[in-house]
Every structure is written in C-alpha cells, then in structure tokens.
Design a protein around this nucleic acid. Structure first.
Length: 419
DNA sequence: TCTGGGGTCCTAGGACCC
DNA sequence: TCTGGGGTCCTAGGACCC
C-alpha cells in the first residue's frame, strides 16, 4: 500500500527572507518576479490585505504604501540554496524522496514500519524550523493528489498544527467536500469550468462523479486525477529527474525594443545563457527556437514570431547557436513593433556522451574547453565578466533589481552581520 | 481506372504545474 | 509607464509509408 507525504514550505520565498531578518515576522511581506513585474510570494499578512498571486506590481503600489508592505526582488540564488538545505534534511526521514519543486517534496513512507505518521510529521517540521528557520506543513496520504489536499488541510486549519494525515478508506470521505475543485492539483481553469457546468464544485463531487464521464470531458489526464482522489495510485514517485527535453531562457524587457539590433543583443545574451545551462548538465542540443513578441496588453498591436531551425549536428558550444539565432532573427524580424518579450529555446536535447562521432572521429575538444573556461570565469567573477560581442554592452550595464536582499548563504561578502 | 486501412512520426497548440 | 520564467504532457491533424 502506498503511503506518501507532501512537505511544502509556507510562503517559501517570503520565509527565506524572514529567516535572515526576524523583524519581518508578523508584518506584510511580498516577493516580486524578475524585473519586479508581479507578485510571486506573499506572507499571510499580505494575503489578508487582498494582494493576489501574480498581481502586477504597479496595481498595488498604493496598498504597499498605505500598509507599509515590505517588498523584495527575487533572490533565487538564496532560495535555491535554502531549498537544497531543506531537501537534505528531508532525505533523513524517508528512503525515497522526489524533489517536486523549489519548495516541496514528496516522501515515500510505503516501506516504513510505523503507525505514528503524525509524530514523524511534527519531527520534520521541528527539524526544518530549527535548522533553517523555515516553516513547513506536512500532509500524508496514499496518493500525490490526496497528499496535496492533506497538506492544504494542514495549512488551512490551525488545529492540525501543520500536520495532517489522510486516512485510507473504501468510501470517499465527506471531508473532501471542504476542498474547492480549483484547489485540486492538476485541474486548471479550463477543466474547472467544464466540471462546474456538470455541477461538480468540490473534490468530493469529482471523486464521486462517474469515471467514464470524467474521461470523456477531461481525457486521460483528468481521469488519473479522479482515480487518485479515490486513493488509486496513478502518479508514481519520481526520484530521479529525466534529462531535460528543452531549455528556455527568456525575459521581458522593461522598455520594449523597436530595433532589430537591440532584439539581436537580447537573443545573443539568452542563447549564451542557454548554452551554459546545456554544458552544466552535460547535454547537447540540435534544435533552437527563438520567440519574440510584443505585449499582449495593448489591443490591436500584437505580433509574435517563433521560427526554429536544426543544426547539422548536436553541440553544446555557444558559437553555432549564436549564429543560428542571428540567422533566425534576420529572417523573421518585422519593423514597426516594439518587442517586449524575447526568448530562446533549445530542443532535440540528449546527453553529451551519446554524441555521434563525426567523420574524423574527433569531437571539437578545443572549442569545448574554451566554452567551459568562459563558464568558469563567469562563475567566479560574476555572470557577465566575459561575454560574446553580439550581446552588446547593454548586457553588462543592465540595471539591477530594486529590492534585492543579500545572498546570505552563498556569498561570503554578503554574509549576515550580527551587531 | 479503382483509391483502403493501418501505422509512425512530427508539429502546433492547449492545459497544467510551481 | 509598469502584467514572470521555466518546464511537462496530451491531443489533433497532417504527411508519409506500405
């Protein structure tokens, strides 16, 4: 019988900031996305003020002022490091774990002989708050979908003190009617709209809805969710990540760019970064797609292009991809628009060790060595110490985010100072 | 001239996740 | 003025083959 736990950080990015600045406790705090564009994380106090997830920053400027909300730019380097520390602690508790996202992990307790899961849950909570200062909640259940719901109970109802265990039973528990259909993992707006038209409004309604009808309206994906709500294990624990199938680097520009030169520079910067990611994971790729688009928020002036091409052979060197994206933009750039979002995606990826030998049986070791040297210099001296000319000087001068906190745990020069 | 049916592969687009 | 970024999976439809 499967027995899983979902451990999930509470308002994770906000909690990471609070761990190093205790005076932020009990006051409203938000963390913004890249470019400080919209809201990524909110403390409970900020949620209570009506700030929504993904809400644009400019819409809440007044609320921020009126309630003295503390605002942070995303400090992903700090959050990733805190995440790794949290996962290291979780590995002590279960033989198998799946790191599902930066702030949550599924733990497999199927083989663990214990009848007191609640006790384990509290031990995990205590361990993580003591070692890292991060609050988490724990939900136990026989399937991932139910573990998500159990975690929701643990977060929402204070009497559970952050730990909830879902009891397996042959009947669908009435408690599921407390969960709105929108809060079921795997159901987005499109699926919920369909289900509501059938009068399915809660997790209980869905669990007791005829399986065939779910299959018909939501396909196999919805059917699996339906099964999982009925304690039938469909989404297995994935301990190891398959190699990535695509790698994307894209950014929105603060001020949209009307000139081809500026777009080209952004593409050059992005493809350089994408190739670094490839090399870091020891992967090679053959396909590349660029994507340029105007904002969608101005009516009538929307334009988007996403041409792609395949190189003659797989590689993880920057120059061939740089050449390819320049070729693509030369072919597809259209004058008369201001481009807001610019990105590149690498596709047809495989592991570098699978690379086919070329005719002469030699791989291009010198070029690879050069690329790897550039990577290590940039890692040591800062990400833009050495760049390709095509990226333009703007890449170096690009503005830093406004509200960035120190990277307390990964940079000696930014370590926490105690007075 | 008649033009079936089954299979594979690829791509675009939709939906979803954090 | 200002609306994130990076992924995965599924389906439908077209092209192609025998």
């Amino acid at each position: 019988m499967s027995q899983l736990a979902l451990v999930d950080g509470n308002n994770f990015f906000v909690s990471c900031q609070r761990a190093f600045e205790p005076k932020l406790n009990k006051v409203p705090v938000i963390v913004l996305s890249n470019n400080d564009g919209c809201v990524l994380a909110r403390s409970n106090e900020a949620k209570a003020l009506g700030i929504k997830m993904s809400q644009p920053h400019f819409q809440i400027r007044q609320t921020i002022k009126d309630h003295n909300i503390k605002v942070f730019s995303s400090n992903l380097e700090l959050y990733c490091d805190m995440s790794e520390r949290m996962m290291a602690i979780l590995r002590r508790y279960a033989p198998r774990i799946e790191v599902y996202s930066i702030d949550e992990a599924f733990l497999d307790f199927s083989e663990v002989k214990t009848c007191d899961l609640i006790k384990i849950g509290h031990a995990i909570r205590k361990d993580i708050i003591t070692c890292l200062g991060l609050p988490v909640c724990v939900g136990f259940a026989p399937t991932k979908t139910l573990a998500k719901i159990a975690n929701l109970f643990a977060k929402k109802y204070l009497e559970y003190q952050g730990v909830y265990s879902y009891k397996r039973s042959t009947e669908v528990p009435a408690k599921l009617s407390l969960i709105d259909i929108e809060d079921v993992w795997g159901l987005g707006t499109a699926s919920c709209k369909k289900l509501k038209s059938y009068g399915v409004n809660t997790a209980y309604d869905l669990a007791t809805f005829p399986k065939q009808l779910v299959r018909k309206s939501l396909s196999v994906v919805g059917e699996r969710t339906h099964q999982e709500l009925n304690s039938i294990y469909c989404f297995p624990l994935e301990e190891t990540r398959e190699p990535k199938k695509s790698i994307t680097v894209s950014r929105s520009l603060k001020t949209p760019a009307p000139s081809k030169e500026r777009v080209k520079e952004a593409l050059a910067t992005h493809i350089t970064r994408a190739c670094e990611k490839l090399r870091k994971d020891d992967l090679i790729a053959r396909g590349v797609t660029i994507c340029i688009s105007t904002t969608r928020h101005t009516k009538g002036k929307f334009f988007q292009a996403s041409p792609s091409l395949l190189l003659h052979e797989e590689t993880n060197l920057t120059p061939p991809f740089l050449k390819a994206v320049i070729q693509l933009i030369e072919q597809s750039f259209k004058e008369g628009y201001a481009y807001k979002k610019i990105g590149v995606t690498l596709t047809h990826i495989c592991e570098a060790r699978h690379k086919k030998r070329n005719l002469f049986g030699e791989t291009n070791n010198e070029s690879l060595a050069l690329s790897l040297s550039i990577d290590s210099l940039n890692k040591r001296y800062g990400s833009k110490s050495l760049i390709y000319g095509a990226s333009g000087l703007k890449a170096i001068r690009s503005e830093a985010p406004q509200n960035l906190s120190p990277r307390y745990t990964t940079r000696f020069e930014e370590i926490l100072t105690v007075f």
